[in-house]
Design a protein around this nucleic acid. Structure first.
Length: 279
DNA sequence: TTCCAGGTGCATA
DNA sequence: TATGCACATGGA
C-alpha cells in the first residue's frame, strides 16, 4: 500500500510510482491547474489539492475515497512497470522518464465530452476550453467550478460551444449530449469490448481513437491502445519494418502485442514521445 | 505565413 | 470496405 488516509488527507508514502506532474501532464486529463505551491485537480463536482512535502505527497480533499479510486491507488504500478521492462527492454527510457504515471479512473461523461473536444486539437487549447466550460456552465463550488452535469450540458447551444473555442466540434457535442439524455451510462461498464466500441461509435464526434480514450480513462479498460499522431510516430520509430500510416492496423498490432498492458504502455510512450518533442 | 494538434464525418468508388 | 478531403481554432 503506497498511501494512508487521515481524515481529509491522503498521504502518498512511496513516490516511486506516483509523480503528480507525470500523472497530470501525460495527456489523460485536462481539468486541472498548476498553482504556485500545489496542483488542483477537478473531477465531476469534486476537487483535490496535491502538495509535495518532504519527498511525499499530501492530497487534500473532502472526498478521500473518491480520489483513492481516481488516482488508482490500489493498483501496484511497480509490478506493471517490471513486467513491461522485462518483456520490452526498449520501453526502458520511456518508463524511466514517466515512472510516476498512473492511469486515472475518471468520470465517463466527462471523458466523452472532453475527448470529443480533443480531436485534431492540442492539449493547451483543450484545457482552456474545458476550464471555460466549467466556469460558464458548471456549478460554483468553494474556490472552483464543477464540471457541468448532463442537465447543465443540455442547455448549452452550438453557438455557446463555439464561443469557448470549440470550432466545428460544437455541433458534435450538441448532438452527443442530446443522445445522452435518458441514456444509462452505467450500462457501458458491463459491456464486452467489441460491443462497447460499437456503442461508443454511435456518439457524434467519437471515432476509434476517442472511443479508446473513453474506454481507457473513463471505463477502466486497459486492453485498448489509442493511436493518435504521437503514437503513430512512436510505432514507426520502434516497431514498423516499413512505414505504416493506417492507424487501424497500428492499433491492431499494438493491442495484439501488449494485450491487457496496452493502456499502460501507451501512456508511457505517449508522454515520453510528446515531452521529448515539445521540450 | 505555414504547419500542426490525443481525428471524425462524409462522399465517392 | 477503403481512400481522400473538409473541417475551426490558436500556438509555435
Amino acid at each position: 500500500m503506497i498511501y494512508t488516509i487521515d481524515k481529509n488527507c491522503i498521504t502518498i508514502n512511496n513516490t516511486e510510482s506516483f509523480n503528480i506532474a507525470h500523472i497530470l501532464e501525460c495527456g489523460q486529463v485536462f481539468n486541472y491547474k498548476k498553482k504556485e505551491d500545489c496542483y488542483e485537480v477537478y473531477s465531476k463536482n469534486k476537487m483535490a489539492k496535491i502538495y509535495e512535502v518532504n519527498g511525499k505527497y499530501k492530497i487534500l480533499t473532502d472526498d478521500p475515497t473518491y480520489f483513492v479510486n481516481f488516482f488508482d491507488l490500489n493498483t501496484n504500478y511497480e509490478e506493471i512497470k517490471n513486467y513491461l521492462l522485462n518483456k520490452y527492454p526498449f520501453l526502458k527510457e520511456a518508463i524511466n522518464f514517466g515512472y510516476g504515471i498512473r492511469i486515472l479512473n475518471q468520470d465517463t461523461l466527462e471523458m466523452i465530452i472532453s475527448f470529443i473536444m480533443s480531436a485534431n486539437n492540442n492539449i493547451p487549447r483543450i484545457k482552456k476550453s474545458i476550464s471555460l466550460l466549467c466556469e460558464k456552465y458548471g456549478t460554483k463550488m468553494q474556490g472552483y467550478y464543477s464540471f457541468p452535469s448532463l442537465k447543465q450540458l443540455s442547455k448549452i447551444t452550438k453557438e455557446e460551444f463555439e464561443q469557448i473555442g470549440l470550432g466545428y466540434r460544437s455541433e458534435q457535442l450538441v448532438k452527443t449530449i442530446k443522445l445522452l439524455q435518458n441514456y444509462d451510462l452505467d450500462k457501458l461498464k458491463n459491456m464486452q469490448e467489441s460491443e462497447l466500441i460499437e456503442e461508443l461509435l454511435k456518439f457524434s464526434g467519437v471515432g476509434p481513437k476517442v472511443a479508446d480514450c473513453i474506454m481507457l480513462f473513463g471505463l477502466g479498460n486497459k486492453n485498448v491502445f489509442p493511436v493518435d499522431t504521437w503514437i503513430e510516430k512512436v510505432y514507426n520509430k520502434y516497431f514498423a519494418k516499413e512505414k505504416q500510416e493506417n492507424r487501424k492496423i497500428i492499433r491492431q498490432n499494438l493491442t495484439k502485442e501488449f494485450k491487457e498492458y496496452s493502456g499502460y504502455a501507451q501512456q508511457y510512450l505517449f508522454y515520453y514521445e510528446r515531452s521529448a518533442k515539445i521540450g
